[in-house]
Nucleic acid binder design. Structure first.
Lengths: 351, 351
DNA sequence: GCCTTGTGTGGTACCGATTGCTGAAATCGA
DNA sequence: TCGATTTCAGCAATCGGTACCACACAAGGC
């Protein structure tokens, strides 16, 4: 590769001048320099620049599982914004492991100008790496309980879960199965609490065994659904707290030859590509996914531009209930103490 | 951040010694140095190292669309291998645009030690950036027609399409709709040719209007399917050449209230997460996705370790026919000149 | 015509690591 | 205990840029 000195020699000026030219300063020999750069196909070395300037022009994006369509969408949104600002994206996959995450963060800290982090779990305390976070950090989808010192872009997990609960309640369900995510994650806990709370508010009690704690993965969803179906009094409706567990649960329902929604209603958190053409089309809580990634990246870049800007922000995106065909009033059962009449179903997102 | 000089001062030795310690050389004051490093939380600056060594320990991965589950899986596989070797991954999304790809490659070339590239299209010629590819390049899923100077990890597109054609033929279909990908891409052309060829070999002629060229995206699949269904003599079976177009086509079938497989059989290239629980479960041509990414990364790292190793390799992975429920013998139609008897269906992957 | 101001340039130190070379200390043999 | 040989440490140059500083030269004010 040609260096700046090569260019300087060829153009008959000093490296200072080349540097100024490159950085938009006024310079006499513009043409000669442009020609020399062209001829040598010169591109300034990012390493050298980075060493001198202490800035890398790259952002680390750390997600638990890039194969999860949600995170894939997030990364896509983030990458698009980054490139529009000429930043590059380092992608790290932590496989939902806190240990791996810690390693990754340590290795990342001095390679990037900022980090978008979707933590695998909520650690007891802020990782020391993050604490002396010379690079800026934005939390995505999941946040740290212990601190509000960081920006974050979240989704209204509790609200979304409430929408789900309300929808199911309005259809007349009372025995509802909940497939939760890990309670030590923001979305896991938020959705859990929102759902349980809304049920309680409606005076419906969730029995402990109708709440199954999964792991946000397919297999977990599968197992949880199986357990719910094995109950003496299986639920008439099931809500799964994320996309992967929805898939797993649907697999289980499918395997057990349970018909949806006539045998049991089903809905999940996060839309699926195929949700509309499933049989039946899936009712879900949806949210803007690419936007969430894009927003996080914009927030981070703003923070980098203006380190002492506003106080840390906590952006919470709204969810949206998409009613399709997988939810319906429960079958009237002899066992039921009273026959629930489906209440009128609301259509708004946030009544 | 602490620098190597800080450590040297604290440990009471020179930077040379620290450097040697870091790089595994024999050193007297091991303990003192280890302590100093620990105390200062010293980590060598990647920028400085990179400048001096001319090596970045990072790999660029360039894909057309990270939100496509196939590429998400590929990236996952690649990232896992990379991290096991302590390499970082730069992710770039080209949005299926050749221009963007060119930009990305130019910007990438001197930031990374190697590139895994899934080209958006097959350019007329090898990009100059790649030609003087100081960083090594491995082509993934798609290759450049004009040259065999690069390593590549492909899938047996033609073979997979042949399996699909054979499967459909064996079921007795003769009027088969093909939803192809762009013919200027490796998988687009390969699958097209494989399918058409196998049909020809069986003496079945594909009429031009039963071949629709899509764009590997959902919307394209949707439109193509619609056109096929609008034919005076619509096909009795449809094969879509990738996952996204399958989804689009299924949407179209769904919208038109066509029943699968009783009205028309359907199958696609690439498995889907939900394929098994669709109604009906989808028959597909499957292939190892994460492995493809992992393999590409391994090949690339090997090439970096041993620049003058073996001649460029062209690895072709096998596909596998997964017969589920979306394909069945065609309904016997009055119009048909002869009544096709379903031939016996084979089960092997590669007869 | 002299002095001030402004513009553009080049020399050079520096960012933080690595490494060839030289020299000193440690180890070994007798 | 002394010299020969092997280890190990340090100096300083270097990678490729950037930017402080000093300075040459032109233009402008009086």
């Amino acid at each position: 590769m040609a260096t700046i000195s090569d260019v300087a020699r060829l153009a008959g000026v000093s490296t200072t001048t080349i540097s100024r030219y490159l950085n938009g300063g006024r310079v006499r020999a513009e043409l000669a320099i442009a020609d020399a750069i062209e001829e040598l196909r010169f591109r300034p070395s990012p390493a050298a620049r980075s060493l001198k300037l202490g800035v890398t022009h790259s952002i680390g994006v750390v997600v638990p599982d890039i194969a999860n369509p949600f995170f894939a969408a997030v990364v896509k949104g983030a990458e698009t914004v980054a490139r529009s600002r000429e930043y590059s994206v380092f992608l790290y996959n932590t496989e939902e492991s806190a240990d791996r995450e810690e390693e990754v963060l340590a290795a990342l800290a001095d390679r990037v100008d900022g980090i978008i982090l979707a933590p695998a779990t909520e650690p007891a305390d802020v990782s020391p790496v993050l604490r002396r976070a010379q690079p800026r950090v934005v939390f995505l989808d999941r946040e740290l309980a212990k601190t509000d010192a960081f920006d974050s872009v979240l989704v209204d997990n509790a609200g979304g879960a409430r929408q789900a609960a309300r929808h199911l309640l309005e259809l007349g369900h009372e025995r509802i199965g909940l497939i939760s995510g890990p309670l030590d994650t923001t979305p896991g806990r938020g959705r859990h609490e929102g759902f349980v709370d809304e049920m309680a508010r409606a005076g419906v009690e969730l029995k402990p065994d109708t709440i199954q704690i999964g792991d946000f993965r397919q297999e977990g969803g599968y197992q949880c659904a199986l357990r719910l179906l094995a109950l003496k009094q299986p639920p008439t409706a099931i809500f799964a707290a994320n996309n992967l567990m929805s898939i797993g649960a649907l697999r289980a329902l499918h395997a057990m030859r349970i018909r949806v929604p006539s045998d049991v209603s089903f809905m999940g958190f996060d839309d699926l590509d195929l949700a509309e053409i499933l049989d039946p089309p899936l009712t879900v809580i949806d949210r803007p996914m690419e936007e969430q990634g894009a927003l996080a990246m914009r927030l981070l870049l703003a923070r980098i531009d203006e380190p002492n800007g506003a106080a840390p922000q906590r952006i919470v995106l709204e969810t949206r209930l998409r009613i399709r065909m997988s939810t319906a009033p429960p079958r009237v059962l002899g066992r039921s103490s009273r026959t629930p009449k489906p209440r009128k179903q609301r259509k708004e997102n946030h009544p």
